[in-house]
Amino acid sequence: MSEMSRDDLRIVAGPANRVLADTVARELGGEPDPSAVERFPDGELRPWVRDVHGADVYVVQPTGPGGGDSIVALLLLLDACHRAGASRVTAVVPYFGYARQDRRQHGGQAVGARVIADALATAGAERLVVVDPHTPALEALCEIPVEMVTAVPVLAHGLAGTGDGFVVVAPDLGAVKLAERYAALLDTPVAIVRKHRESGSSVHAKELIGDVADRRPIIVDDMISTGGTIEAAAGVLLDHGAIPEIDVAATHGPLVPSAIRRLHALPIRRLLVTDSVAQHDAFAEVHTIAPLLTDTIRRLHEDKPLDDLLIRT
């Protein structure tokens, strides 16, 4: 691809989190390109974008919460940009829904992450940018390049001031590497809770690895949806003598209404999430990932490496 001028960079804001996309566009020195997603009376969506012929276009749209409409809007916006003659189209998906469905647990199930990834490529995306996806296998599932950037430094900065007397807790085995990244930035030890998921909203925690007695726990995860994992982990921590002043940090907060009630009942001192999905509940302390996305998009546009922004496994 030939070298582009700054004027060729375009941000198209999807409807799921227009505030975040608008902020990214302004931090890049402009405004998001005019676009809209019209809804017919029967619910069908139809997008419209301005002429983006020859431009390097970044469509910013998380796929949730709510899943269906957000995904369809993203796919249609990508297709609209591709058909309008964009020279390159990148899907910037801060929260990638269906990433939990990266494998089949039982016969008769779908691999949802692969289905969505294939659909993005078919719709015209040539690259995918995601923030702290639920599974690192997402890259292997996609036929297009995937840039998996991390918001851990953003949230760790929000937790600054911790250290002696704190312990970072992985609420399940899948979050161990994530907890280690937080612990390295916060200079704290790590503890691990083993859990068993009984259903989409019911979690049973089994045992604890590590010492939490008389320490303030910081439970970290990539996302909180129902709050069941946090609730189960908190119970184990308290049973093992942790101080009942819990901090919780998660990149994504697609919090369902029952999650807010569940978390309110726990001895949570602070709940930190990012604005990867639009947040409306005052209970959560929201830290923006707009600078992270701005830096990522600028570097991709200028064909510069993202090494220090990527998830380190």
Rank of each mutant, 00 (worst) to 15 (best):
M1V: 11
D7N: 12
L9E: 08
A16G: 13
T23F: 09
R26Q: 15
R39T: 15
F40L: 15
A55R: 14
D56R: 10
Y58C: 10
V59Y: 11
T63H: 00
G68A: 05
R83N: 13
G85S: 08
S87W: 12
V89Y: 11
V93W: 14
Y95F: 15
R100I: 09
R104T: 06
V111M: 13
G112C: 13
D118M: 14
E126L: 14
P133G: 11
T135A: 14
P136M: 01
E139L: 07
P153Y: 03
L159Q: 01
T162Q: 06
D164R: 12
G165L: 03
L173M: 11
A175Q: 11
V176M: 02
K177P: 02
K177L: 08
R181Y: 02
Y182G: 07
A183P: 11
A184M: 04
A184H: 10
I192R: 10
V193I: 14
I209W: 10
I209P: 07
A213H: 11
R215H: 09
P217K: 05
V220T: 01
V220P: 03
M223H: 03
T226Q: 05
G227Y: 03
G228H: 05
I230W: 03
E231K: 06
A232Y: 04
A233I: 05
A233P: 01
V236R: 04
L237E: 04
D239K: 06
H240A: 04
I243F: 01
P244F: 01
P244W: 00
D247R: 10
A250V: 10
L255P: 00
P257L: 05
A259Y: 05
L263T: 00
I268R: 00
L271R: 04
L271E: 08
S276F: 00
A278K: 05
A282D: 13
E285L: 02
V286N: 04
T288V: 08
L292Q: 01
H301E: 12
D308N: 14
